[in-house]
């Protein structure tokens, strides 16, 4: 008999000193932080920021977000993506982690680059995994970019989502004095409930 999946359990309220201690001011290291890009990373540098809301519209202050994305050439830093016609970027790994409790507005912020489309005919996107107390299984969503309307409309995943819910997957682009910022809020429930994928 083949082995069966180990059940998921909530991350609970007290993960910070284990998973993102640097951000929460504990004196030890973490495997990845909210900054994915350095000065040398290729591509358009962006800041990705937002908040997580519960079913009452209250801000969630103890969520953990992880993002995973392709580089500016649309390639993932992973052995399963061995496409030599797309360059790896030695200054970009593509994984980031940020909690929501570290600032007063309970915002998450990632500094990263806008990914290239990973396949011809697909839109660029960033994968997001969300964990929190009260969530027994993590959820997966994707961030698409609101300035990529034509690419999004042609994207096989984005376009498979019911039209009235597609807006929940779009990050809004802003020009700020400190650079390009995309804003993306996550709603766990309600009229604006974010599309979560059965990945």
């Amino acid at each position: 008999m083949s082995p069966r999946q180990t059940p998921s359990q909530t991350i609970g309220p007290f993960f910070h000193y284990g998973l993102n201690p640097v951000e929460a001011n504990y004196p030890h290291s973490q495997i990845a932080g909210h900054c994915l890009a350095s000065d040398q990373t290729l591509g358009e540098h962006i800041r990705l920021t937002g908040r997580v809301f519960d079913g009452n519209g209250a801000v969630v202050e103890d969520a953990l977000l992880e993002i995973w994305q392709a580089n500016a050439a649309g390639r993932y830093a992973h052995p399963n993506d061995a496409r030599s016609n797309r360059a790896l970027d030695p200054h970009f790994h593509g994984f980031g982690r940020c909690g929501t409790g570290a600032n007063e507005q309970a915002r998450f912020t990632f500094c990263t680059i806008k990914p290239g489309p990973a396949q011809p005919g697909h839109a660029p996107f960033i994968s997001v995994t969300v964990f929190m107390r009260g969530l027994l299984n993590h959820v997966y969503t994707r961030i698409y970019f609101d300035d990529e309307a034509a690419a999004n409309a042609a994207d096989p995943v984005f376009s498979s989502v019911a039209p009235e819910r597609q807006v929940t997957l779009l990050a809004k682009r802003y020009h700020t004095p400190s650079g390009i910022e995309y804003r993306f809020d996550i709603h766990m429930q309600g009229d604006q409930e974010t599309v979560f994928f059965d990945l």
Binding site: R133, L135, F196
Partner: peptide
Amino acid sequence: LRGPSRSLV
């Protein structure tokens, strides 16, 4: 209040 209420896509 925290678990999604709609089906996963």
